Amino acid sequence: MPPLAHEQFFTSLADLLSKTSQKARGSVFLTQKPLLSTTTSSDTTSSQPSILIRATDGNTNAPNPKTSKVQKKSTLSKIKLSTVVAPEELEAFYARYAEVCKAGMAGLKKRDRKKVKAKKAGAGKAANAKV
């Protein structure tokens, strides 16, 4: 799949974040890495490389062996988005990228850590009782 234009990437990312926040569960993975060119000229090594930005949801194409139900093909599709940002456009891109990510994360629920703390406290008391 070829990289999207910046505006298409932002609209697709906003749509992906809103769909994921409306579900009871879900993940969106955001990655970025330098896009190294295959040419070996001395001019390109001195300048900064372009950045490849990717976004994907947590769905995989492989079925989960732990679930007994066979899932439909439509639920197995994985959404993959990517765009390439030139070094000159980084500041403007990151400003807009931050806005889209913050807007998409506004609907998320805060994690309930009381259960985790209670389990750790219970395990610590059990360990002290054995000693």
Rank of each mutant, 00 (worst) to 15 (best):
124 G>P: 01
115 K>D: 08
118 A>M: 08
19 K>C: 10
39 T>H: 07
85 V>R: 01
14 A>W: 03
10 F>L: 04
17 L>I: 07
47 S>N: 11
77 S>V: 15
32 Q>P: 00
28 V>M: 11
126 A>F: 09
116 V>A: 05
4 L>M: 14
21 S>W: 03
46 S>N: 10
1 M>A: 03
104 G>W: 07
18 S>N: 07
31 T>I: 09
62 A>S: 13
43 D>A: 06
90 L>H: 02
28 V>D: 08
105 M>W: 06
108 L>T: 08
88 E>W: 00
57 D>K: 06
116 V>K: 04
78 K>M: 05
87 P>R: 05
121 A>E: 09
25 R>F: 06
3 P>Q: 08
17 L>W: 03
102 K>N: 09
14 A>K: 14
121 A>G: 00
44 T>F: 05
34 P>D: 14
16 L>F: 00
98 A>N: 03
115 K>H: 09
130 K>F: 02
78 K>S: 05
30 L>A: 07
39 T>F: 04
36 L>D: 05
46 S>H: 13
9 F>Y: 10
101 C>W: 01
43 D>T: 05
2 P>Y: 02
22 Q>F: 10
28 V>E: 10
87 P>L: 04
72 K>H: 13
15 D>V: 09
47 S>G: 08
4 L>G: 07
122 G>L: 11
30 L>N: 09
87 P>E: 04
46 S>R: 14
84 V>P: 08
99 E>V: 04
72 K>Y: 04
65 P>G: 13
38 T>F: 10
71 Q>K: 15
23 K>Q: 15
69 K>M: 14
117 K>T: 03
84 V>H: 07
85 V>C: 06
114 K>P: 00
92 A>W: 00
66 K>Y: 05
22 Q>C: 08
71 Q>H: 12
94 Y>G: 04
67 T>E: 12
86 A>P: 03
34 P>R: 13
108 L>D: 02
105 M>V: 01
84 V>I: 15
109 K>G: 07
128 N>R: 15
94 Y>C: 06
7 E>H: 15
18 S>G: 01
110 K>E: 14
67 T>N: 11
83 T>A: 15
33 K>G: 09
106 A>R: 05
106 A>Y: 02
85 V>I: 11
19 K>T: 10
3 P>F: 03
47 S>P: 02
76 L>Q: 12
24 A>M: 07
50 S>P: 03
98 A>E: 08
90 L>D: 02
121 A>F: 11
53 I>W: 03
26 G>W: 05
24 A>P: 02
76 L>E: 04
37 S>A: 15
47 S>K: 14
82 S>I: 02
121 A>I: 01
119 K>H: 12
98 A>F: 02
82 S>Q: 14
66 K>D: 12
112 D>C: 01
99 E>G: 09
15 D>G: 11
117 K>S: 08
60 T>M: 09
92 A>P: 02
100 V>G: 09
43 D>N: 06
77 S>N: 06
24 A>V: 04
119 K>Y: 10
10 F>Y: 06
4 L>Q: 07
41 S>K: 09
22 Q>K: 15
69 K>Y: 08
37 S>Q: 15
29 F>P: 01
14 A>Y: 04
69 K>V: 14
97 Y>I: 01
91 E>H: 08
122 G>V: 00
124 G>C: 06
1 M>I: 00
